[in-house]
């Protein structure tokens, strides 16, 4: 039809249809899809990468990180600061004494997780990270960053199971290599 205004009327019909069906349809099909945050949450997606965290096996003393400093070097905005712990005689004990991540600089790129050779730093899902002021409050220290392996398995089951299998296989190999040889 070439009545002037027909295009607008067709458009109004589209918006009316959308408005009325939004009451009946499911959220995925055109209904109301607002999630009333913070009472409701969206489903957590496994691969979501936000700020990093450190993994320990069992107790916080058995931290996997050996303070090699590779993630500190490879981090593009240089937001990680690591200091190796020195044991009594001044030799490096392969653990970090200081592990600071500046959340104001971290850009959630995931490069630290990609390059870590000891499977100790991974990307967390936590995004509700707030602080009262920028300089000191947003620098997270080792204590807040340490989380147990069970937490890692809970938030990222697929990735955690791959890492666990790899570590178990490496353990078995080490045990087999260092086991006392039986009678030949």
């Amino acid at each position: 039809m070439t009545v002037f205004g027909w295009g607008i009327l067709k458009g109004l019909w589209v918006t009316l249809k959308n408005f009325l069906t939004s009451y009946f349809r499911k959220p995925d099909e055109g209904g109301i899809f607002t999630v009333q945050y913070p009472e409701e949450r969206e489903k957590e997606i496994e691969n979501f990468r936000n700020f990093p965290f450190l993994v320990y096996d069992g107790t916080p003393e058995k931290i996997r990180c050996v303070a090699c400093g590779i993630c500190e070097r490879e981090c593009p905005p240089k937001c990680i600061h690591i200091e190796m712990e020195l044991d009594g005689t001044g030799k490096p004990a392969r653990k970090p004494a200081v592990f600071d991540i500046d959340h104001a600089l971290c850009m959630n790129c995931g490069m630290c997780e990609d390059v870590c050779p000891f499977d100790s730093i991974f990307m967390d899902h936590v995004f509700e990270v707030t602080a009262p002021e920028r300089a000191e409050g947003l620098v997270r220290h080792k204590e807040t960053l340490l989380k147990p392996n069970e937490y890692f398995q809970k938030i990222r089951p697929v990735a955690a199971s791959i890492i666990d299998q790899k570590r178990k296989a490496a353990e078995e190999k080490k045990k087999a290599a260092s086991a006392p040889q039986g009678p030949q």
């Binding site: 002037f4 205004g5 027909w6 295009g7 607008i8 067709k10 458009g11 019909w13 589209v14 918006t15």
Partner: peptide
């Protein structure tokens, strides 16, 4: 497209 393409105001 039904909403926009032939909409007189847009044209």
């Amino acid at each position: 497209e039904a909403l926009l393409t032939k909409n007189e105001i847009l044209c």
